[in-house]
């Protein structure tokens, strides 16, 4: 009976969504705001990647809210998991391939992560993706050596500085008489590494913050595994 009602619910919802989706024109030119952003973005923001200029330039406050949500989720997960001082390390050490492969791949992951962050305004990528890669890079040794752990204090210091610098860059724009988080500085030539004003700095802050948050979250999840 419950299965039947559940399937009925899902089917009805699907019908409703299909009715909505059939009203959307597929493959038509973008919305008015999309066209406006496409035409105005190279002059106003100066980032070759228009998604970046939307994420950080036009909707910078949304990104700040997103960082706040991610911070709240990570700290709530840490709070719920709690109890840092339980034992770890009853799991066997990783095998030869994992141990040395992890050590070998670590600098590559670090390089790729910083490349993605630094080129966020030129190529696809940016702070979030690069932050995820940095977190994975720092977490990989923990998979190989279960006894090891990340230093939570260093991580929280990095995270705090990154978040504070994000807000400070935004406030600096405010002090210049512009809008909060509006890109400043010299915008330089479109497409070179140093361009787009403060956007790369903002993305570095986002990348470090996301990386530190996710790394501490992952190491929180990995700890206390021998409890049960």
């Amino acid at each position: 009976m419950r299965n039947l009602t559940g399937l009925l619910f899902a089917g009805g919802l699907g019908f409703m969504l299909l009715a909505i989706a059939s009203g959307i024109d597929f493959g038509t030119p973008p919305m008015r705001i999309g066209e406006a952003i496409q035409s105005a973005s190279p002059q106003e923001v100066g980032a070759a990647n228009i998604v970046t200029s939307v994420v950080l330039g036009y909707r910078g406050i949304d990104t700040l809210g997103e960082l706040a949500i991610l911070f709240a989720a990570a700290s709530a997960a840490g709070l719920v998991l709690g109890r840092r001082h339980t034992t770890t390390g009853t799991q066997r050490k990783g095998g030869f391939v994992l141990f040395h492969g992890g050590a070998l791949i670590f600098p590559f992951l670090l390089t790729i992560g910083f490349y993605i962050i630094f080129h966020g305004h030129l190529t696809p990528g940016g702070g979030f993706q690069g932050g995820v890669i940095l977190a994975a890079a720092f977490f990989l040794p923990l998979l190989a050596r279960p006894g090891a752990r990340l230093h939570h204090s260093i991580l929280s210091v990095i995270e705090a500085f990154a978040g504070a610098s994000f807000i400070l860059i935004g406030l600096a724009a405010l002090a210049e008489g512009q809008a909060f988080l509006q890109p400043m500085l010299n915008q330089d030539t479109l497409g070179s590494l140093i361009s787009a004003g403060t956007l790369p700095l903002l993305y570095i802050a986002v990348g470090l913050k996301v990386g530190a948050e996710l790394a501490s979250l992952l190491s929180n999840l990995a700890q206390t595994e021998s409890e049960q």
Partner: peptide, 21 residues
């Protein structure tokens, strides 16, 4: 490509990492 990269990083790496842990 931006979204594809995010989905690749989050969906392939981080999500299975979190769920497996």
């Amino acid at each position: 490509p931006d979204v594809a990269m995010t989905e690749a990083a989050v969906g392939a790496g981080l999500s299975s990492l979190i769920l497996a842990l």
